[in-house]
């Protein structure tokens, strides 16, 4: 698979919630089979940017998007594009584990069933659970409620659920922030493994986590009107060891934020 190829590009993106401008004029590309970390102080629009990438912002009343998000040579905000189809290709894992109150099997099978991908459904579920490093822990209790799993296991189940519909890109919104250190470690090593087949964009508050898991890093800040903007982006090693902007350096060395 070719490297350094952008699978998703944001061009001059601004997002408004009613009158409030949450992010302004962000342009950024996401490379195939890499983990890109979005970092920055609270309220700088990291999550807003992430949710724009698969049109989850559509669900917020009054949210308005300007600019383009280009995926497979189309602007996903084109009126002819069905957001449900976009989300099939660009999946999302949320901050708090949010399994459905169904069995473990049905959680993973949900996306397959609603999209009519019911052939070899058992194999697909097993494959997804294996990819999410959860199979060995749950293979004997697939019929049990997902609510019986620990927080870390629930989050890996949510990842498996996302993998099942075989997206190309996975968006993760602080996927480990609700987990204990062991759960966090499992998610981080899983993210590294997943880059073999997937492109990952992750929002994180945790600088060490960004340094550990990501290949690319984008640093966002907010201006005096609380609108988020991009300060700089590039290879994680460069951003952390040799930041071009002094604000980036101040943030990653912990002087503010």
């Amino acid at each position: 698979m070719p490297n350094n190829e952008a699978v998703l590009s944001v061009r001059d993106l601004s997002v408004y919630y009613g009158e409030f401008r949450a992010i302004k004029n962000i342009s950024l590309s996401f490379q195939a089979n890499k983990v890109t970390a979005l970092i920055g102080p609270s309220g700088c629009g990291k999550s807003t940017l992430l949710r724009c990438l698969n049109r989850m912002n559509d669900l917020i009343p009054q949210a308005k998007v300007e600019g383009e998000v280009v995926y497979s040579q189309q602007d996903i905000y084109d009126p002819l594009v069905d957001p449900a189809q976009v989300r099939l290709h660009i999946g999302m894992v949320f901050q708090k584990p949010n399994p459905f109150p169904k069995s473990i099997f049905d959680n993973v099978a949900f996306g397959l069933k609603i999209n009519g991908l019911t052939e070899n459904i058992e194999d697909s579920v097993e494959k997804s659970l294996r990819s999410a490093a959860l199979w060995d822990e749950v293979k004997d209790r697939l019929d049990e409620s997902a609510m019986t799993l620990s927080g870390g296991q629930q989050q890996r189940l949510c990842i498996a659920r996302t993998l099942a519909v075989e997206p190309e890109i996975i968006l993760m919104d602080e996927p480990a922030s609700a987990l204990d250190p062991i759960g966090t470690l499992a998610i981080e090593s899983l993210m590294r493994d997943l880059t073999e087949r997937y492109t990952i964009v992750v929002v994180t508050h945790n600088m060490q986590q960004a340094a550990r898991v990501s290949d690319e890093t984008a640093f966002l800040m907010m201006d005096e009107d609380r609108a988020g903007y991009l300060v700089e982006s590039g290879k994680t090693d460069n951003i952390f060891q040799n930041p071009q902007d002094e604000r980036t350096e101040a943030y990653i060395t912990g002087r503010f934020g």
Binding site: M56, A84, R87, P99, F100, P101, F110, G111, I114, R161
Partner: peptide, 20 residues
Amino acid sequence: SHKQAAYALGANRFQVVYKI
């Protein structure tokens, strides 16, 4: 969060209402 999870899996509004 359950509705969001379903939408993120490519569900349309009817499927979210009916299945979740």
